Amino acid sequence: MYITITAQKLEGHYAQSATDFVDYLEKENAGKPTPDMEHFFDQYQDDISAEAVIKDIDGNTAKLKRTEPKFYSITLNPSQRELKHIKDSPEALKRYTREAMKDYAKAFNRDIDGRPVHVDDIKYYAKVERQRTFKGTDKQIRDNQPYATKILELEQQIRSIQRGEHTGNIKMLQKNIQRLEREAPYQLDGKRIVRGMAKPGPQSHIHIIVSRKDVSNRYSLSPGSKYKASEVEMNGKTVKRGFDRDAFYKNAEKTFDAMFSYKRNYVETYTARKTYLKDPKLYFHMITKLPTNEKAMAFKLLQKSGVNTALLRIPTNTIQLTIKAINALKKGIGKAIESGSIGI
């Protein structure tokens, strides 16, 4: 499970309203008949319209400055292994989202009217998306780029010849384009993978738009708080403040495992991701010390995400890998983490 929290973009041309973001989340519904559309939902209701979401989020911003985010975007990104485990069920993902938002509420170190924050205090709307498309940062696009560049140059030459600006053999140029299309290293259904092409396999994920203010429009609940969960003295009173992202990520992961009896491998855990970022050597060491079956699964998951696990089999004393091997592993695992392909 790969979870992100992002504040509303306010700089540049971005508007104060949630309209642009909600419109973006409606993109998969374009051209679909109503029964096939995915609608917004909240903790208790389904089939909420985009117009209602915009009205509620935009109308829940009391006393917020123009420079302050009015809402946050949360994405819950299950790995393909997790999606296969739940049979890529949108209904299962909705149920999970509602439980994960309970974990979100609990991560606030705040009191509302003398009690801890509850999920019913959170104004949010969520939507299941079923597809992902290839982007410029994906390995497939980057490795195919030299071929894409040459193809574009040849296509420009053909247009130039057709306009009478230059002379040349159009048929030969077209054959060269066809050859380059075939030789590109990453193909899907016999076609070169390009930006915007739908990714194969289960790709479902959840987008959540959550208001900065609670449902009463009185309290600010910011998951982007610069303060971790803590208590401070203000005007002679002890005041709770902050949001514990680590607790939210860990608990949301545990919630998925408990709900669906999912056996999570070490490399899929949030703890593993934190270990990798802080101490890569310890991360590699932990993998090599896993029980045989779990280690085999860890290697399988890493290999699927493009990591060269042969480097982890180098015979050493306390996993004292060479600098070259460590850097190669860090590069591969870093890209896998960024794409969420190993679910951490």
Rank of each mutant, 00 (worst) to 15 (best):
K9P: 00
Y14C: 04
Q16L: 15
Q16W: 10
F21K: 15
V22L: 01
Y24V: 06
L25N: 15
P33Q: 01
P33R: 03
E51L: 05
K55R: 14
A62T: 10
P69F: 03
K70T: 02
I74G: 00
P78Y: 01
P90A: 03
R95H: 12
R98P: 05
E99D: 09
K102S: 06
A105C: 06
N109K: 01
N109P: 08
R110T: 08
G114L: 10
D121R: 06
E129P: 00
Q131F: 13
F134R: 01
K135R: 11
I141T: 04
P146N: 04
T149M: 14
K150Y: 08
L152N: 11
E153H: 09
L154N: 10
R163I: 07
G164H: 10
E165M: 11
E183P: 00
Y186W: 14
L188R: 11
M197Q: 09
S204V: 06
S204P: 04
H207C: 11
R212Q: 15
S216A: 15
S222V: 08
G224C: 08
S225P: 01
K226M: 12
K228S: 13
G236Y: 13
D244L: 14
K254F: 08
T255D: 12
V267P: 03
T269E: 09
K274T: 13
P280R: 09
F284E: 13
I287M: 13
K289Y: 10
L290C: 10
T292M: 12
A296P: 00
L301R: 01
L311G: 05
L312F: 11
P315Q: 04
I323N: 13
K324N: 11
A325R: 08
N327E: 15
K330Y: 00
K330C: 14
G340S: 11
S341Y: 00
I342Y: 08
